[in-house]
């Protein structure tokens, strides 16, 4: 356990010392860009104080993720970056008001990998995550929008399983991210943005968050399969986000079906491109 904690702190630090050098093997990058459509359910009592009003609708998500093995701990550490943008349009049950929402998320994760079986890898680690967003109610006057800003640390885990069905290769991935500590922005109940931003009463609007006032989980379930010369990634992303801060209850729930393309490539940037020029047939260099 102690080693595990040290590992998390180590990888979230700003200095990442290089350990063993494996010059002969290039560490490729696995990059997937997937687009999804799904159902959204939003609730924010800053926008409807005193009423437990849930807005339902649909949204669009674009997600780019990159994974790469690092030269750390004998190549057992991988880094994952996820950049996601999603927008949604929702309405109240009576369809008399709309909530429009938009979120930008960035996640930087480091995982230690355990090769349980030749076909199965379990990756565990931690991630730092930031989110900026808003929910905008088209009918409200002085409380028209609820701004979202979160920075948090997450427990992060993946299982990657490769198998074949009649010689057809498939790779299934399940991943979850659960924030356990962070800070977020929240006005006080019935505190106007005029009071916060025009008059500068910013007391108590940045709050520490953990499981006592926030629970969120992201579930990724994807399958990669080859189609002609492409690798297709299809899957599901369920994102559940609940907060209860400054007497404002909020939830953002989405269930999206995702589809996109994956590519595996070796990145030659800067001097590495020059150094390896003899191994490449570059159209540019």
């Amino acid at each position: 356990m102690r080693n595990y904690v040290l590992l998390i702190l180590f990888f979230l630090g700003t200095t990442l010392p290089l350990l063993a050098q494996t010059e002969d093997i290039y560490h490729s990058v696995n990059e997937g860009t997937i687009i999804g459509v799904g159902g959204y359910n939003l609730k924010d009592t800053y926008l409807s104080p005193g009423e437990d009003m849930k807005y339902g609708g649909w949204g669009l998500r674009v997600l780019n993720e990159r994974m790469k093995l690092l030269k750390l701990a004998d190549g057992q550490i991988s880094r994952q970056q996820i950049f996601s943008v999603d927008v949604a349009t929702t309405s109240n049950p009576a369809s008399t008001a709309n909530n429009l929402a938009g979120f930008v998320d960035y996640t930087l994760a480091y995982h230690y990998r355990f090769q349980i079986l030749p076909e199965l890898k379990i990756l565990t680690g931690a991630s730092a995550h930031g989110m900026l967003g808003f929910i905008y109610n088209t009918r409200n006057g002085n409380n028209p929008a609820s701004a979202k800003m979160d920075i948090d640390l997450n427990i992060s885990a993946l299982a990657i399983y490769s198998f074949k069905i009649k010689d057809y290769p498939l790779t299934v991935r399940y991943q979850m991210e659960i924030p356990f500590s962070g800070v977020l922005f929240s006005p006080h109940k019935l505190q106007s943005y005029y009071e916060i931003f025009s008059q500068g009463n910013t007391s108590g609007i940045i709050k520490y968050n953990s499981f006592h006032n926030k629970f969120a989980i992201k579930n990724y379930l994807t399958v990669d399969f080859p189609v002609a010369n492409y690798t297709v990634r299809a899957g599901y992303l369920g994102s559940y986000y609940y907060t209860d801060v400054n007497e404002i209850q909020s939830h953002i729930i989405s269930n999206s079906f995702m589809l996109g393309i994956v590519k595996e490539f070796v990145s030659f940037g800067g001097k590495r491109a020059q150094r390896n020029a003899n191994k490449l047939n570059s159209a540019y260099y």
Partner: peptide
Amino acid sequence: FPFNSELPNGWG
């Protein structure tokens, strides 16, 4: 300073 909310039937 006025705020908005809504009723279950959708009235503001």
